[in-house]
């Protein structure tokens, strides 16, 4: 049952991801991306990481995607944008990219297959919950939290600065 669910989720995630990168309409692409996120969230559940799964839905599918959709809505001009995008991306011309990424895929799988064969099948019933994570996070990984906080602050300032309108006209 679990493996079936995994295959299903994995298949959905991969197909949705493929659709995401090939869409002309940004809004469609984002919706497919949300589907990918949800599928990955399900996989997290299957691995016994309910906290991560929840975060995946709340932050990724929720907050970050909302940001994307926000910007897309701001810049999207309906049919015009789709037409422009179809000028920019033609599936027929993506042969080189397909070739490169396929080679990459096979190479990495070839590289990692010996290690992968050694690893035993995980026990999915063992659940690592929010409590364990929280305990570890605020004891041994405290420095990491602070660094993350700093990173977020930097991003905040950067985003604020970049998002400002030009002052050239007023000057």
């Amino acid at each position: 049952m679990t493996s079936m669910l995994f295959y299903l989720a994995a298949g959905v995630a991969i197909i949705a991801a493929l659709l995401t990168v090939t869409r002309h309409n940004a809004v469609h692409a984002l919706l497919y991306l949300v589907i990918t996120m949800l599928a990955i969230s399900l996989i997290f559940f299957l691995f016994g990481a309910p906290f991560a799964a929840a975060l995946q839905i709340i932050i990724y599918a929720g907050a970050i995607m909302v940001l994307f959709v926000f910007v897309t809505m701001m810049l999207h001009q309906g049919e015009l944008s789709v037409k422009q995008e179809s000028q920019l991306y033609r599936p027929a011309q993506s042969l080189g990219a397909i070739l490169l990424s396929t080679i990459l895929l096979f190479e990495v799988i070839y590289l990692l297959s010996p290690q992968a064969a050694v690893i035993i099948t995980p026990d999915t019933r063992v659940v690592i919950g929010a409590k364990e994570i929280g305990l570890k996070l605020y004891t041994s990984y405290l420095l990491l939290v602070e660094i993350a906080a700093l990173l977020l602050l930097t991003a905040l300032i950067g985003a604020f600065h970049l998002g400002r309108r030009h002052q050239e006209n007023s000057k």
């Binding site: 995994f6 990168v21 990918t36 996989i43 920019l88 991306y89 993506s94 397909i98 799988i109």
Partner: peptide, 27 residues
Amino acid sequence: MISAEQLLFFSLTLFVIGVFGLLVRRN
């Protein structure tokens, strides 16, 4: 049940799809 190989394959596939998107899109 879920073998490591499958999981690795899934993850890598997803990653390469990302790489492909990065290469192929101009937007």
